[in-house]
Design a protein around this nucleic acid. Sequence first.
DNA 1: TTGACATGATACCTTTTGGTATTATATAAA
DNA 2: TTTATATAATACCAAAAGGTATCATGTCAA
Lengths: 106, 106
Amino acid sequence: MNVGPQETFRALADPTRRSILMLLSSQDLSIREVAAKFEVTRGAIKKHLSILEDGKLISVHTSGRERINHLEPNTLRAVSDWLGYFDKYWDERLVGLKQAIEKDKI
Amino acid sequence: MNVGPQETFRALADPTRRSILMLLSSQDLSIREVAAKFEVTRGAIKKHLSILEDGKLISVHTSGRERINHLEPNTLRAVSDWLGYFDKYWDERLVGLKQAIEKDKI
DNA sequence: TTGACATGATACCTTTTGGTATTATATAAA
DNA sequence: TTTATATAATACCAAAAGGTATCATGTCAA
């Protein structure tokens, strides 16, 4: 059970899991389909997906014999909120630059 | 050596290390001063500080026999940038609305 | 100088993590 | 109904993580 940001931070600590999130950002995928993109076994991928689910970074629904993994991007907001605590300490020159860039994007 | 965001994500995965970052946001502290705030031994805190340094989340300078730990908040920008990749997927209600609008060519 | 103090560096221990291999079960397809 | 497929579940392994205890070294202070 996820009772806070700990499981989310923990889930993000592994590079394979971060790659899986990138993969799932473009489309939902079954365990088999995710595993096909990596060198490790399906069992290892299954464990990674379970950890991502614990961290509420993905959700799962079954479709027949398949288990479809779906990105839950809103959970990353918890991480963003945590980072927000430090916003005020960021280099003000860089903050200014970022704001200028964002202003030009619009 | 830190060659990417991996060491930073790894450093953030531990709750004690995240607490240390919070502590250091208000003031620079020696190892002894940081250790005084936690239940674990100074040795354990020293290891955490080394991992935070590997992740470039803190910097260190020696002052006499003390080792002063200083927050490097700009490194959190790497994490923020990574999160930025998923910005466009946030709040699926808005994504759905956007797609509906585009479909109707409004 | 001498003693206390702050840290560095190890050695060691236990638990967690990331991984494989194997077996079992449920579903799809011929 | 058989057979192949997709996943679940488990046992097991090596390495990493988090922790303690201990000793060495450098620095401050009386």
